[in-house]
Amino acid sequence: MTTEFVDGVTAQSDALGFEPAVVYVPHPIQNRTKAEVEEIADRAFAQVMAMLKSA
């Protein structure tokens, strides 16, 4: 999820009484180059793997 939607995720989570596993990445995504998106994904990978291991 991009950082633009932190408030939306929080509001929806509170409304549903559910705490999702979320990794936030920089916003926006759509205008990034392939290399930039790959770099963002590489930086987020460790967080994603940690969440999967703890699940």
Rank of each mutant, 00 (worst) to 15 (best):
L16Q: 07
A55I: 03
L52E: 04
F5G: 00
M1Q: 09
E38T: 08
V37K: 10
L16I: 00
A35C: 03
V23D: 00
D7T: 08
A55L: 11
R43H: 09
A44I: 03
A11D: 10
D7W: 05
F18V: 08
Y24C: 01
T33R: 05
E4Q: 12
E38D: 14
F5Y: 14
M49H: 10
A55K: 15
K53Y: 08
T33F: 06
K53S: 09
A46F: 11
N31T: 11
Q12Y: 07
A35K: 14
P26D: 06
N31F: 13
A11Q: 12
G17F: 05
L16N: 04
A15L: 10
H27Y: 11
I29Q: 12
M51F: 14
R32W: 01
L16D: 07
A44Q: 03
E19D: 11
I40T: 06
S13I: 04
M1E: 09
R32M: 13
Q30L: 05
G17D: 05
A35M: 08
A15G: 03
M1C: 02
L52A: 07
F45L: 15
Q47R: 14
S54E: 15
I29D: 04
I29Y: 06
M51C: 05
E39R: 14
D14P: 00
K34M: 10
M1F: 11
E36H: 11
T2M: 09
K34N: 09
V22S: 05
P26L: 00
M49C: 06
A46G: 10
I40W: 02
P26Y: 02
F18R: 06
E36D: 15
